[in-house]
Design a protein around this nucleic acid. Structure first.
Lengths: 270, 270
DNA sequence: ATAATAGTGTCTATCAGACATTATCTG
DNA sequence: CAGATAATGTCTGATAGACACTATTAT
């Protein structure tokens, strides 16, 4: 395998003299949509951080940060998530890479988007002015995205409309967000949320994804509540139970649901 | 909106003095799995290029290249595809971003993977030694990936095995390729193909994706053949026609199928 | 005891899978 | 006319959606 290239170099020699950078390189960040359930499972929360520097100074943004030279994007996302929330071993999945040259006014920055689902909503540092973080109420319907936190008096609303267009023989459908409030999200972070939610809802149909927002042992009323939160609509109890029946196993104990007022059977993921 | 940050700078002033690069930046490339049908719809072809430099000198690789400073990843993929094949306006979709720090021995290179589906298999430059390109026969089954070109005597086989593992409460399933021939694909390009095929087959279920491999006007026997090629298994004619019925419209003319021996009705995508 | 919720039974419409039959074209 | 293939008909089992009912428990 000791090929020599057109300059007569072996691979080893080539690598030793290799000079990167024909083109200026982009910075690469990871940004995450982190969702968790409210304590009573009455809604979803999303984690945002307040930017302490330009651009979008004082604007709320998705948590994230630069990918370091010795780590993969997944590792970077995992690290940032732990730094921000203390969460480890939660569901964390790559969604899409955003790369429009002008998406960051500073310099060329690509963002590899991730989504994370947590079974809990841990307290985050709120006082530190430089990197304030907070959980916001999160509502995502067919035509509206509403992110708000009544404690700090912030409300961000985007209308969502479906645009269809064709490119030759190929059809595309896009969900386009339009800002409806004075306050907005930083950068193109709305788009990250939209893409993540589309992917999330699609994947619920063929994966065990909602289980990663449940506790290790859960009741079926609670699991159903999580499904309904993520899907954005109600489910029939009997049908839901048939649907998950072959994926769960009985723990052999009972506990009170987070939701309910009566004891119910505990299950875990098979 | 004329916020001043902790250094007393407005956003404009901040951007003027901004110095990028806390961390060394990665190079970013796009790499593509480009598929097209054989002329008689008896199989799929994949486009590969022979590497003319280290690393993986003389090794076959997916077409791709560096993302330039003024273009998005989609634009880069689109440009590379046109340069390589002359194809424009074909289905081209982002698949996944590969970012392991050691995936390229030269330097840190992330790859944003795309897949493209073409209705035709255009002739590619084969003589030029520096950047030889060729279409290979492509077979992707549940447990095998076979890429070969009998004209130039190249055969590359990977066995595919499903590995399941858990991370806390979260289950994962991965399709792991194992090389079975002397010849291999460059870099982690097998993984790009595997991920692309998984996404492709999943998306066929809820999109019109196979239509982008058909001609503008097509017969149903031909469209079914394309579905079968992409899915990797046979379909029942009657069921297939019911499935696509509400997505097609009658052109009002007949033509001979690519496949068949009798005239059949022409349709187009609604 | 009562109200509320946990848990089960079952009906229906729809759809994918499978196979059979008829219609039409080519040689 | 014969063989092949285009096009349609129909049976079946599985499944999602919808609603009704019974069982259990907290107050």
């Amino acid at each position: 395998m000791e090929y020599r290239d057109k300059n007569g170099l072996t691979e080893k020699e080539f690598l030793a003299q290799y000079d990167p950078g024909d083109y200026p390189r982009p910075s690469v960040t990871v940004d995450m949509m982190v969702l968790g359930p409210k304590k009573d499972y009455s809604g979803l929360k999303i984690l945002l951080v307040k930017r302490g520097e330009h651009p979008f100074y004082n604007c709320w943004a998705l948590p994230g940060g630069f990918v370091r030279p010795e780590e993969s994007c997944y590792e970077a996302a995992s690290r940032e998530l732990k730094e921000e929330t203390g969460l480890k071993h939660v569901f964390l999945e790559q969604v899409y890479t955003f790369s429009k040259p002008d998406r960051d006014p500073r310099t060329r920055v690509m963002s590899v988007a991730y989504m994370a689902l947590s079974p809990v909503v841990p307290r985050v540092k709120g006082g530190d002015d430089a990197l304030e973080a907070a959980w916001f109420d999160f509502e995502f319907t067919d035509n509206m995205l509403h992110i708000y936190n009544d404690d700090i008096g912030v409300s961000i609303i985007y209308q969502l409309s479906t645009k269809r267009f064709r490119n030759g023989n190929i059809k595309y459908g896009n969900l386009v967000p339009t800002l409806k409030t004075k306050t907005r999200l930083a950068f193109d972070h709305v788009e990250i949320i939209v893409e993540s939610m589309i992917k999330l809802r699609r994947e619920i149909e063929y994966t065990d994804l909602p289980f990663s927002m449940a506790k290790e042992e859960f009741t079926l009323p609670d699991l159903q509540a999580i499904y309904e939160l993520l899907l954005g609509h109600k489910l029939y109890k009997a049908n839901f139970r048939i649907m998950v029946a072959d994926r769960i196993e009985d723990v052999g104990a009972k506990d009170k649901s987070v939701i309910g007022k009566r004891m119910s059977e505990l299950y875990r993921l098979k």
